[in-house]
Each structure stands twice: as C-alpha cells, then as structure tokens.
Design a protein around this nucleic acid. Structure first.
Lengths: 340, 340
DNA sequence: GGATTTCTGATTTACGTACCTCAAATATTG
DNA sequence: CAATATTTGAGGTACGTAAATCAGAAATCC
C-alpha cells in the first residue's frame, strides 16, 4: 500500500495539519518540524496522490496557447488539435484558451504574454519567434510562477521549462540524407526553399541539410535557401523561376510551409521529375505523396505536440517531472506507404 | 461546471442511490427508472469522474503482459519498457505482472491465458502467435470479462479490444518503397529475410514489400523470404550463403530479428555494399546505422506500445473509449540522422 | 512575569464517487 | 386482501487530500 499523509503524520510524530502545511509550503512550521516531516516523507517514499489532491482542491489547470494566425495549414491543424484538447478539458481538468497573433510578429506575442494574469494562468505554450523581446517576456512570465513551454519552434536561451517539438537540425539532416540517397550518386543541384530564416526551426533545418550534403553527398550543390515567408504563391513563383532558369536542379527541399505552391510549380513543368522532400503532413502534402509528386514528407505529429504540451505544463504546475520518453516528439518520415 | 451524480439525481427525479445503481449496473431498478436516469445522463452530458471513482473504490488495475522469452533484443527492450511501467504503477494505479513464454509456442501462451483468474485480472496484453488455439483462449478470456489487447503481433479474427502495434503490411510497403528508391532504377536482386512466416506480422511485412516491388520497381527481383526463426546465427549463415552464391544481390530486407547476424554477414564481405533495411532500433541496429551498414531501420516505438496498451486496457476496463489518435503506433523510419 | 507572537494539534468540511444499511413505498402474487 | 417480493429513498462512511478554524503550547519580547 502506498503511504498517505496519515502515515507521514504518524511517522513524523506530528499532526495531519502540520504535514499538510509542510507539503503545501504553507507558513507556520518550525524548521526542525519541517525536517522531521521531510525525512518521514522520504523514508516512507510518499508521493502525493495527484488525483485525490486535484479532487480536494477542485483544481483546474488554466492553460493558454499562443499560435500564429494566417493561412499556414500546419498551424491550422495545430489549432484544430488544441480545439480537440479543449473538448477533453472537463475530463483532463484543463481550461484552455487560444490566442492567435499575426505570424512573424514578436511584438504581438510580447503583448499577449504581458497581458496574461499570472494568478489565473498556470501554463502557457507558445509558438515562439526567436527574438530577444520574446525571450524577455517569457522569462518574466516564468519569474511570475507561470510554466512556459515552447511549441514547434524553440526559444533557445530562455528559461522555458520544455520544448514541445522536434530537433530541427536532425530533421534537416534527415532530409539531406534522403535526398542524397534518392539521387543515388547522380550529380546536380538541390533547390532549398525556406519560410523565414528568422525562425529558429527553419534556420536549423537549413543548416542540418547543408551539413549532410556537404559531407556525404558532395556531388549535390545547394541553391538557396530561398525565403518565401511561408506564402504558397511566393513558393510557386520562386520554385518555378528556379526550375526554368536551371535545368540541373534534380531535387527540391522545402523546409517551410506553402506546399501548395510547390506542388503547382512542379505540376506546371510536367515531364521534369525532381526528388522532392517537404515538411508536415497536410491535405496538400498528403495528396502530393499519393500522386508521386513528393517523395517523402518529414513530419512532426502536432496532435502529439499539443497533448504533450498539456501534460508537461500540468506536470510542472504540480512540481512533477514529465516522462521524457513519452514527451519526445519524433521526426516522422512519411512515404506514401506509411501515412497515418 | 461538469455535472455530478447529484445533478443526475435531481434531473431524473430519483435518489442518489438509484442513480448509483443504474450507473454501476447493479440490480433492483425498474426498467422505466433506468431509462429516466439514462436520459438525464445524456441530457446533462454526464461523464463519470474517473479519478474520484477510482479513489472511492480504491481501484487498481491488475494487468498481465504475456511476451516471448529468449534472446530477441526487441522483446527484451519491450520487457524493459514494461518494467519501467511497473515502476510507475503506484501513480498509475496499476499492478502489472509479466509472464514470459517460449517463443513461437502457442501452447504455452494458451496455458498462461487459461491459468489466469478472470476475477483478479482486469486486462491482458499479449504478443500473439497467430494460431486457432490462441484465438480461442483469447475469446474465452474476453467472455469472462477480461480486456485483451494484442501487442506487436495481432490476432486477426479474435475479439481482442485493441491491437497495440503497427500496420505491418504498410511497414513492408514502406521498406519496399525505400529499397526501390535507394536502388534508383538499377536492376538486381533483393534478399528478404524473415523470422517465421507463422507470425502474422512477418507475413504481412513480406507481402507488403513484395507488392510494392512488383508494382513499382519491377527491375528488382525478390529472393526468399528465407526463414531464420529470428536466430542471429541462422541469419548470418543464410545471408552469407546467399551473398556468396549470387553476386546480383544489391539489397537486403530483414523483416525479422537477428540483426546481429545480418551485420556480421555483411561485415565479412567488406567491399560489397548492398542497400539494407531492417526492423527495430536496438543496440545492434543503431550501431549499424551509424556505421553506414544499414541504410534505414523501420521501427515501432515499444515504449509507446506498452504505455498505449496500459492506457487502452484501463480505458476499456472503465467502459471508456481510448483516444484513437494517441494510441496509433507510428511506422517510424529511422536514418542515422533522426535516431532518437 | 505578563503580553505577544509564532508554532502546532485537533477537528471539521469538502471534493465526486462507491458501496453499504435500513426503512419505506410500490408492485406482484396467491 | 394479505403476504410477499421488488424497487426506491435516505443516510451514512470511505477514499486521500486540501483548507479552514480554534485552542493550546512554546518561544520571544519588553
């Protein structure tokens, strides 16, 4: 049987009320007594029954998700996953709010973060733009006792408790390795398309990709990265222009969004068939895989990311450590055959 | 606020005791009254607070995992994951027992299943051998009210509530697609190595692989599948013999265990460098990826499988439906760059 | 030494559900 | 209609914790 607060009280020779004060960090207990209780806790291996505790304190976890607005389908899928989590909130004892901000606008993120009431929010998950002002706003929230996790794009140097996303350098390397093998020794050029190199995730993918090509596939030469601000139309014209200008392009790596534009650009140049790798399974990329327009899609499971963010924020709010293996987001590689 | 049993009682115009009898399927309630309560439940959207319920009934979930013994490293990793889950059992309110049985021995599985006391076991997860006697034993357990889930290898035709594993046909197709692209149009032969075609997962992988090669890469000819009973030494000699006998083998797909033997066979024939795809990330396959001996490894996350099995069995034991997106096991594709 | 202040104990109520008992109401049977 | 069986109500205790109150004990101050 696992020990209860009663056992702790008996073991420490104090009353239940005192144990409660120590466990919940309330004042009014002498240092000596605190230690007695703490040794009893560790001797008996007591762990608070979170369910009973939540029941007793009628706890709910007020969480806020800060994500970019706009047409980016990945972000819209992310939003849908958050909405799905909101549907489970009564069971999971959460109360989730979504705040959308204009994409690539760190000022807007800062304003949202600063407007939060630290008393009534226990955790925040945000898709971060990697700028100093966001970093500062995040650290300020943390100082106010709010748990902050980054989602999809990390904020290195901040004190966020967790990053719910993939290792984007490794993702870029994976794309490089696949492109290299798909080209199978044939020399040529690889067009790299990015959204914005101000996003740390895009930057990381580009550098991982370049590193692998340089060291393992020197016969492939990189063109780009071309920046498109994740706009499908910009992707279409950029890719189209590049393909028309250079017949030696035998592969394309789109490490950002705007897959629709990429698909259109390739479709308009039918007979050519470059090896194509893109990111994120969406309606468009799924179709492109099925049609043989994309060869592989690298994906992060945003359902997993959202659920993980919720679990992690709840755990930290309770002073617990999340299960790291469960919270690691995989770099999924999808061919048309293993699409979920 | 979510509704409680009290709200249901008030809404249905009956007493708390009656609501309790209906919700927990206890006798002594007129059909009419049952219906009154049930309409109140659905009108208010009542869902039982599982935490409070578990607290009240001091519930623990006694679960049994039935897995093969023997040196198969994947199974040993699986066992380690189960052991890790046992370490969390006080928090998760589970009581987990592991039963190991000789591999490929359906009689032994049946004996273990038959020996279970359905009163004191709420769920069973088993790595099934696909035979009629196992199917019958599983269905018998289910009739006795025990929740049964299959793990890693499914038992089609049985009434198991859930399969915690991957779609192995799709996994085989994925391997075929990758091998085909890695060979990039070069004609040649592909050696397929299997453990036992009596395992439905191995059979499925083989057929998925063959289907893709036939339809999309007709320039590749399949040799095998060679059966090795998942024994590394058998794999080594079989692969070695095949490579020596046929210089046209340009790729190898090992869809079963025994990767150590595969690595040894290839290492002994240094200058040749076939494209190699294997299954499951283990110590050996991880090293082989890093060394460039394997090109890709297809993996199922067995930590995920174990955690999922536990969640699913608990959910069904409570009469709830698990979250399907969360419980879907991915077909992971690992190159050396995206290894976890 | 008395008045404070600080600490501690004892006790109670509550969370939402399970499960038990006992009595009362209603339905069924002979 | 009485006797019985079935159904329902009312109320309680328990699970493990949180949080509150109130009274007493101990330490500190002047």
């Amino acid at each position: 049987m696992r020990p209860t607060v009663h056992d702790i009280a008996a073991e420490a020779g104090v009353s239940l009320a005192t144990v409660d004060r120590v466990l919940n960090g309330r004042p009014g207990v002498r240092r000596q007594t605190v230690e007695k209780v703490e040794t009893a806790v560790s001797r008996l291996g007591y762990v608070r029954d979170v369910m009973a505790a939540n029941l007793a304190r009628r706890r709910i976890y007020p969480l806020v998700f800060v994500i970019p607005a706009g047409p980016n389908s990945f972000m819209r899928v992310l939003e849908a996953e958050i909405a799905a989590a909101m549907g489970r909130s009564s069971v999971e004892r959460t109360s989730i709010r979504i705040e959308t901000v204009p994409p690539f606008d760190s000022g807007a993120i800062v304003r949202v973060l600063d407007a939060l009431d630290p008393q009534s929010v226990s955790g925040v998950a945000l898709v971060a733009t990697d700028t100093e002002e966001v970093r500062i706003a995040v650290d300020r929230l943390i100082d106010q006792g709010v748990q902050v996790a980054t989602l999809v794009s990390d904020l290195p140097g901040s004190r966020r408790v967790h990053f719910c996303g993939i290792d984007n350098i490794a993702a870029g390397r994976t794309a490089g390795n696949l492109i290299g093998r798909f080209c199978a020794g044939r020399p040529g050029k690889v067009l790299v398309v990015a959204g914005s190199l101000k996003l740390s995730d895009h930057m990381d993918r580009a550098s991982g990709f370049a590193a692998v090509l340089k060291s393992e596939f020197p016969e492939l030469e990189i063109i780009g990265p071309v920046e498109t601000n994740d706009d499908a139309d910009a992707v279409r014209s950029a890719v189209g222009a590049a393909l028309d200008a250079d017949p030696h392009i035998i592969a394309i790596y789109n490490l950002g969004a705007g897959n629709r534009g990429l698909i259109e650009a390739i479709a308009a140049r039918k007979p050519r068939r470059p090896a194509v790798i893109a990111h994120e399974v969406t309606r468009h990329s799924r179709q492109a895989l099925a049609d043989g327009v994309f060869d592989a899609v690298i994906n992060q499971d945003c359902g997993h990311e959202v659920r993980s963010a919720i679990r992690v924020l709840k755990a930290y709010a309770d002073g617990l450590n999340p299960l790291s293996a469960q919270e690691r987001i995989r770099i999924d590689v999808f061919l048309k055959d293993n699409l979920p």
